[in-house]
Simulated assay, not measured.
Amino acid sequence: MSEPLFPMEEDLRAAAEDELQRACTLAWRDLSGHTPWGDTFEGFTPAGREVCFERNYLWESEAGGDIQVEIVVFPPTVYEAGVRLTGLILRTGA
């Protein structure tokens, strides 16, 4: 199998940005009863690389407040080589 045309870092970042966008569409009200929470699953980057996606929902500062969303996308055997992005789901409008 040939190597994808996109550089690894750029490809991981694109996958992380897409996953963060999806993760931040969940409503605070739906997540608040499950926070803190996280999971890891396998998938593919835009260039077709096999990777692991780690998604975590954590309280930003205190329980019941804003929820921080953390996404890490990494090659299956090299967690340290991954890209980590964070977003925020505000309690406003809960």
Rank of each mutant, 00 (worst) to 15 (best):
D18R: 13
T40A: 14
L20M: 08
T35Q: 03
D39A: 10
G33A: 02
L26R: 14
P36W: 09
W37F: 15
D30S: 15
R29P: 04
C24A: 12
L31V: 00
L26H: 12
D18L: 11
L20Y: 02
W28P: 02
R13N: 05
D30W: 09
L12N: 02
A15T: 00
D30A: 14
L12S: 04
T35G: 07
T25K: 15
D39K: 11
D18F: 10
C24E: 15
R29A: 07
Q21A: 12
F41E: 14
L12V: 00
C24H: 01
L31G: 06
D30Q: 14
R13L: 03
Q21S: 14
A23I: 01
W28F: 07
R13G: 02
R22Q: 13
T25Q: 15
E19W: 07
H34L: 15
Q21K: 13
H34W: 15
F41M: 13
A23Q: 04
Q21Y: 03
L12W: 00
L26F: 08
L12P: 02
A16V: 01
L31A: 06
A14K: 12
A14L: 11
E17A: 11
R22C: 05
W37I: 00
G38L: 04
A27V: 02
S32Y: 07
D30E: 15
A16E: 11
E19Y: 08
R22F: 06
R29N: 09
T25G: 05
A15H: 11
G33E: 10
T35W: 03
A16Q: 10
A23P: 04
F41W: 14
T35C: 14
C24S: 14
W37H: 05
T35V: 13
F41T: 14
R29V: 01
T40Q: 15
G38H: 11
D30R: 12
R29G: 04
A23D: 08
Q21D: 08
L26K: 13
L26S: 12
R22T: 00
L20K: 04
S32T: 03
E17F: 05
W28K: 09
R29L: 00
R22M: 10
W28R: 09
S32E: 12
D39V: 06
L20E: 09
A15S: 08
E17Y: 04
L26W: 05
H34P: 00
E19C: 09
D18G: 09
G33N: 03
C24Y: 01
A27F: 06
E17R: 11
G33P: 06
E17V: 01
E19R: 15
L20I: 04
C24F: 00
A14R: 15
